[in-house]
């Protein structure tokens, strides 16, 4: 049984988490309000929220060695935070170790597989996640890994099976929308509805959902609406890297140079895919040019 299912007491904090309302996860929920069996999951969620907000040091600092030793969940969180901070190989090793020892632990499954997947070991991540017991978070992660490795067919299959046991759960909708964004055609519109519903509802809106809405509109060719959504995402969260990255894309799509967005992004996240991709491609362009010897 998924402790985050709609009838558990974790549902609100979990929903807030998957809607990327991280500050709400941290501020609106108090561990002591939950029954004792749920203390740990709440704490883990809050640590993950802190990680998502980039507060890695705080997370690492608040988990002592002894805690990490006694509770594998916390150990996973600490490893996760330190991986996200530096991307160290040691963290990957640690994740592999944890995955081996506590493969049945959901937190470990989620966090370690994230580390594994990010370090390029999709196979291991999927193997670890495949041990989940009906967790939608795990399913969502599996779907994302499949999509990242360009296997929308497997992702769709996974989403479909999740749909059969979790019906209309938010994560299932989201995961389907992610798959739909890859499939395209009518699916764009469907994905848009999912994102829009989240983004336009004040209680569920977040920069993240607005970005998602904007992206889906971009794919639908509605650039003006996409711009509005991304701008309002930036209004919520000035330095949202994904919003800026997509703003760069949008600017390019409409034929502007997007230099301003690019420099903003550079300030926020030097390592972002867009920038990395552009740099790589610039190099690739130079290399490709070398084949030709123009005479003037």
């Amino acid at each position: 049984m998924d402790p985050f299912s709609s009838d558990g007491e974790l549902v609100n904090i979990h929903t807030a988490f998957i809607q990327s309302q991280y500050t709400s996860v941290l501020n609106d929920f108090n561990t002591s309000d939950f029954s004792s069996s749920n203390h740990l999951p709440v704490q883990v969620l809050q640590y993950r929220a802190q990680c998502a907000l980039g507060q890695y040091d705080e997370v690492i600092g608040s988990i002592s060695d002894s805690n990490a030793k006694s509770t594998p969940d916390l150990a996973a969180v600490r490893t996760y935070a330190s991986y996200l901070r530096t991307g160290s190989a040691g963290a990957v090793k640690e994740a592999e170790r944890l995955a081996e020892q506590h493969a049945e632990n959901l937190t470990i499954q989620l966090l370690c597989s994230t580390i594994l997947a990010r370090s390029g070991n999709n196979e291991a991540a999927l193997t670890l996640l495949s041990k989940h017991q009906g967790s939608l978070d795990a399913v969502a992660l599996i779907i994302q890994i499949h999509l990242l490795s360009n296997r929308p067919d497997l992702a769709a299959k996974e989403a479909q099976s999740a749909r059969s046991f979790a019906q209309d759960a938010l994560l299932v909708n989201l995961a389907e929308a992610w798959v739909g964004m890859r499939k395209g055609g009518e699916e764009y519109q469907k994905a848009f509805y999912v994102f829009e519903e989240l983004a336009q509802n004040p209680s569920s809106a977040s920069a993240w959902s607005l970005v998602a809405q904007g992206v889906s509109e971009l794919h639908l060719g509605r650039t003006e609406e996409a711009n509005a959504a991304i701008e309002s995402a930036l209004g919520l969260e000035e330095g949202n890297a994904d919003a800026l990255a997509n703003l760069v894309v949008l600017e390019k799509v409409v034929g502007r140079d997007g230099a301003e967005a690019l420099s903003r992004l550079q300030k926020v996240d030097k390592e972002h895919e867009v920038l990395r991709g552009m740099d790589e491609k610039r190099e690739a362009f130079k290399t490709a040019c070398e084949k030709y010897n123009p005479k003037f």
Partner: peptide, 17 residues
């Protein structure tokens, strides 16, 4: 090239889709 791909944030901690 830059106008060809979007970045859809999905699960926290994971690179965008």
């Amino acid at each position: 090239y830059a106008a060809s791909r979007t970045f859809l944030p999905a699960n926290p901690g994971m690179p965008p889709l």
